[in-house]
């Protein structure tokens, strides 16, 4: 009896953390907590270093190929593997540039990750909801941020983020569609490259 009890304790003791880091909810929860810890160390002088740390932590949690496919929509089917790679690379660069510049504003944010996760697609897709309060904002109103994840061999990956119902990914679909109508997939790749070159120049 005692043996079973110990076995059970060991099993639970070992398994719970392993399982815990592997649910979509805990992935978002843990990553948010780690990001906030990193941001708290930002003091105005080490901004670049903190940004690098946060990017190194956050980027692997995303599947940018899937994100790009979702943003491009139907046009994705007609793209060659090389074009898909180029699109993903440029879109990822653009997203990282745009959003990592805003991260220091969330330094003192409170993030409340909701425990009830919405499972879809026979449990392979999950929506994790969260509420973020930035104390410096005037009315302290919580902002709803939702993450959509899917299960891969390497664990759960995020491929869609929405803020107050507006998706940061599908909001690009019409803009991408316009570029594809004008100049094909290569036209869209060029437009993204130009954009990124402009952002680099602006930041330098």
């Amino acid at each position: 009896m005692k043996k079973y009890l110990i076995a059970a304790l060991v099993l639970f003791g070992l398994c719970t953390p392993a399982l815990a880091t592997d649910t979509p909810q805990s992935l978002i929860q843990d990553t948010s907590a780690q990001v906030l810890d990193m941001l708290k160390k930002e003091d105005g002088k080490n901004t670049a270093k903190v940004r690098g740390q946060v990017e190194a932590l956050v980027i692997p949690k995303f599947d940018f190929t899937r994100m790009t496919a979702l943003a491009v929509g139907r046009g994705w089917r007609d793209a060659t593997p090389e074009q898909k790679q180029a699109l993903t690379r440029e879109f990822q660069t653009m997203l990282v540039r745009t959003y990592s510049g805003t991260m220091t504003r969330f330094k003192n944010a409170q993030i409340d990750v909701k425990p009830n996760v919405l499972l879809n697609n026979e449990g392979r897709e999950a929506t994790v909801r969260s509420e973020v309060v930035v104390p410096s904002s005037k009315d302290n109103k919580p902002v709803a941020i939702d993450y959509v994840l899917y299960k891969t061999a390497a664990g759960w990956k995020v491929f869609n983020v929405s803020v107050e119902g507006a998706s940061l990914v599908t909001v690009y679909r019409n803009q991408f569609g316009d570029e594809i109508r004008k100049g094909g997939i290569d036209g869209l790749i060029r437009a993204l490259q130009d954009k990124n070159a402009k952002l680099t120049r602006g930041a330098a």
């Binding site: 940004r51 496919a69 089917r77 990282v96 697609n121």
Partner: peptide
């Protein structure tokens, strides 16, 4: 023509492709 895009269908077999490597942005 945009109705009901199934993301699994769209990504197909390149679903497991690794994310492109991007150098961290320099401020």
């Amino acid at each position: 023509d945009e109705e009901d895009i199934d993301i699994d269908d769209l990504v197909g077999d390149d679903a497991s492709a690794p994310a492109a490597q991007v150098a961290p942005a320099k401020p």
